[in-house]
Structure formats: C-alpha cells, structure tokens
Design a protein around this nucleic acid. Structure first.
Lengths: 139, 139
DNA sequence: GATCAATCATTGATGCCTCAAATAATATAA
DNA sequence: TTATATTATTTGAGGCATCAATGATTGATC
C-alpha cells in the first residue's frame, strides 16, 4: 500500500466523521437546521421561488423539501401558494416575520463558518472551496 | 462583503450538500453503510476490541454503536461477549464470516474513494486530508 | 374529447444520528 | 457493608435523509 492509498482511506474516515457531526453541530450553534437555513437563504432576495426550483438548488429530496417548507410555514417563516397558471407548482416566499428572523440566523451562520475555518489562511479558503466542489461533482 | 466571506459561505453550502449525500452514495456504491464499514475496518486486525473503544474511534454516539453492532451480530459479521473481568464492558471481534466478507467491502470502499478523488493530484490528497482534519478539530 | 405520459407535491416506510433516561456492574467512601 | 458515584451499554423519542408509491394537474397524441 502506498502512502497515498492510506491517506485516501483516512480522507474517507475523516469525511464520514465530519459529515456525521456537522449538521447537528450547526443546529446547536445556530438554532436552525442547516438545510432549513439554506432554504431561507435562497429565499432571501424576497422573490417567489418555485418549490421544485428550491429543491434542486438545495440538492435535497422532494420529500424533504416538502417537510421543511411545511414546518417553516407552520412557524410563519414562509408563505406558499399554488401557481395559478399551473396548479401542480407551488410558489414559496419569505414572510415578513421570516425576513426579520433570518438576519439573526445569518449572523449565527457566519459565526459558525468562522469557527470551523478558524485556523485557515486566506489562501487556503479558496483551495478548500475548490476541493469540496470537485468532490461534490464526483459523487 | 469581501471575496473571502462569500467563499466561506459557499464552503458551508458545499459542505452541507456534500454531507447530505455522501453516506447514501457510499452505501449505494459499496453495499454497506459507511459507519458500519468503519467499524469493521477497526476490527480488521482480528483482535477483540472494547465496544466503548470502537465508539470513540468511529466518533459516533453510544446508541448508534450499540445498534450497529447488534445488527452486525445478527448478520453474523461480528461476535460479542462480555468482559469476564468487568461485566460492564463488551468485547467485539470480527467473525470468520465477517473476515471473509470484509475483503469485498474493502475493494468497494477503495473504488469509492478513487471515484470521489478521481481528479485530485498526488500533491492535493495530503492537503485535503489536512484540511478535513482541521475542520473536524474545529467542530 | 378520451387516453396515456410527464411533472410536482405529498405521504408512508425505513435508516442513521443525536440526546436523555434507564439498567447494570463496578469503584469509592463513610 | 451500605450508600453513593462512576462507567458501559441499552432503549426511547425525535430530527432529517432517502426511496417508493400515491394524487393531482397538465401536456400530447390519436
């Protein structure tokens, strides 16, 4: 086994451990699940967005997006209505209350990022972003 | 907002998407969940290992390790017995059947790693490993 | 216009993870 | 030795993700 082989295995172990924890830690730190916040983030512009479009952007299952939006709607964070021109589709929009609350979440989110990247240099950040994007493409 | 700030946010989005998918993809490709295979991998040497030690190595919850081991035991992959010198502890060991089967899993695992890192240079691999280890420490 | 296919959203079932509480066994101290 | 911690494992409850199956609506074709 070459040194690289064993480093590759280590990467998988690291990735496994990291992925097991990150969602949970994120929610602990910020008070909202990472997928939910991604959704709100997409809606941040204030425009109505199709549910199916949100689903593709967040890269999450149909069922999951339905459940998140239902919950966010119940909490008063978003509003939903059917597309009058095509009743299969649903439009989603941030509510006024959601618009207010998201500011706080965004700050928490930034704190979280700062925390997990605290010992990264300015030059390393874009390299990391590139690595992650490539891995994601390979999956 | 500086360019780095926006790159940092992108990293979180990437990490979120990546972590959402990787476990599932791993299982699809290899036929076993990544945590389970991590457990088997730890047991690969053939020695008896304490359950609590496994739990710390895999970096998973107590409850999760119990359930995985129960399942692996039911499948005949591992055997468990209480430590006769301290009945609170449990020793876990790979069964003969497990020893056989794991070889195939290891190959699948290597294929999976190769797939997700397919466009990475030899010099990038250790950098990635370092990045992930640091992020994990920061969590 | 009736039928069949495609699209979007939802629900049900299942898996893995977490925390918290319960159980059991051992160690420690009064 | 009896009461009180501590440690290891298990069980229960809840969250989020997936797939598969179901409904509902629209589009296409004959």
């Amino acid at each position: 086994m070459t040194r690289n082989d064993s480093t590759e295995k280590q990467i998988l172990t690291l990735l496994n451990g990291l992925c097991n924890q990150i969602h949970h830690k994120f929610e602990c730190c910020t008070g909202i699940s990472s997928s939910r916040l991604e959704i709100l983030h997409e809606l941040c512009g204030g425009a109505e967005i199709k549910q199916s479009h949100l689903q593709k952007r967040i890269n999450i299952d149909n069922a999951a997006i339905t459940r998140h939006l239902k919950q966010l709607e119940a909490e008063g964070m978003v509003t939903r209505r059917k597309n009058p021109d095509d009743n299969r589709e649903t439009f989603v929009r941030l509510s006024d209350e959601g618009l207010e609350k998201i500011e706080g979440y965004k700050i928490e989110r930034e704190n979280f990022i700062r925390q997990i990247l605290k010992d990264f240099d300015d030059e390393e950040i874009p390299v990391l972003a590139d690595f992650l994007a490539r891995i994601k493409n390979n999956i």
